[in-house]
Design a protein around this nucleic acid. Sequence first.
RNA 1: GUCUCCUUCGUCUAGUGGUUAGGACAACGGGUUUUCAUCCCGUCAACGCGGGUUCGAUCCCCGCAGGAGAUGCCA
Length: 492
Amino acid sequence: MEVRVRYAPSPTGLQHIGGIRTALFNYFFARSSGGKFILRVEDTDRERYSDESLEDLYSTLEWLGVKWDEGPVVGGDYGPYIQSERFDIYKKYAEQLVAEGKAYYCYCSPERLEALRKEQAESKSEYQGYDRHCANLTAEERAELEAQGIKPVIRLRVPTEGKTTFHDILMGDITRRNRDISPDPIILKSDGFPTYHLANVIDDHLMHITHIMRAQEWIPSGPLHVLLYQAFGWEVPQYCHLPMVMGKDGQKLSKRHGSTAVRDFRAKGYLPEAIINYVTLVGWSLDGSTEFFTKSELEKCFRLENIHKSPAVFDYKKLDWFNGQYIRAAADERIASLITPYLQEAGFIQDPLTEEDKALVSRIVPPVKERMKVLSDVVPLTAFIFRDEPVEDKTVYIGKGSDLEKTVEALRRGSDILLSGLRSGRSHEDIETELSALATELSIKVAGVFQPIRVAITNSTVSLPLFDSIELIGLDETERRLRRGLTILEEN
RNA sequence: GUCUCCUUCGUCUAGUGGUUAGGACAACGGGUUUUCAUCCCGUCAACGCGGGUUCGAUCCCCGCAGGAGAUGCCA
């Protein structure tokens, strides 16, 4: 039988790390088993729905290169794939359950339910949940409530006796006593929309989903879903609950742990392959030693059996490491086009790129590539090229073991060695040797010579390699900044 | 409160009835280097606790503790 899995997010917020981890696991499982990956939009919560979320879903999956075989936009044999367009289907099935006595109309107000919950919480009652107030209304009672204009919800009758078990590929059999299942959950809301439980079960059945891979937070509702399948007389699909992604403090990963929206990672300059690689490694491993995986490798080697059972903490630093690795491995041309928008946004170069800027960006890439963890790092790294903000604090120019007097001397003579050397085309090695000799002569460390030069040219003690920096701003500008540095050091 | 799941270095993980318990990130130290970074080398660091079973348990069984999740007209 062909494997059919789905990623079924609800467009109520931006796609986050946990969500795409689920998407990726589904996608890789489908690909590695020759099955189909289906995308379904679960927009049954009209209160929290937003168009932005839906657009974010599509753009994020596209950016990651995750293509769905069936779903919105591409279509498929079991559409529509957006739940709000399947409104009538859910209503029909819910009413069928009512007709069969497996579900019933409930007229309780949200206020009554709220009060009930509060009372149960305060009394620490062992029994929590709906009190089945409307479970056995007579036709007359219902007619009267209807006449008052109350729009009812539909609740599923959960048995009070017995227990329900489902099998999870990772976890094994999971059993709950029926009395512990949320009593008579709402399956159709008063606005006619289904709740998650109903819509999910119906669609998974109608779309012939074979494996349900979702986060472990759904485990407790597994038995409820089985009850629903049984009520309809449908075959229960296979379950595989995925370990959750946690923050540093061991709680479910959320905004307070830092960025979780994939869009934010993208904006900061993470590469999609780094995100895919790292996120897949959270809760999954091939052999415990292989670290790097391309997307197409994962499409081949991903196995359900290698998924871990316990929750995993998301490590931002390891993601940074992966990203740095991928940046360094990328072709220079690609990095050039990727860093361009950051330089433009910083106002360093024009938006329609001039030929000159384009050439400059290409020259920036090699020295910068070794130093970036995220693409946006390019801005502070190259600011000195586009903005000249001289360091006024003399002490910054003074290298370790040197003093102001020697620093002035080092900068003056060092500048001459540097400029004349470069103008006459001497090798960097020769110039370096000569600068070292100067240090020896002044009886200071090599850094005592290089530091004032570096600070004068790059306006920072930390910079790209000196000769690269000079090359990027040009010899004339270099000379101007060196002179200016000397002026700063010599003024009182 | 009740129910369900989980438990190997700080983090992600590998692994076995007898191993020096392996790798990666982080941290720390060193080397290369004009700074930073890269790169290379090294150090630190784990089987939650208590009972069993066994010649022997990190691994099998039972308790416990801790953590997480669920208990919504949200998913």
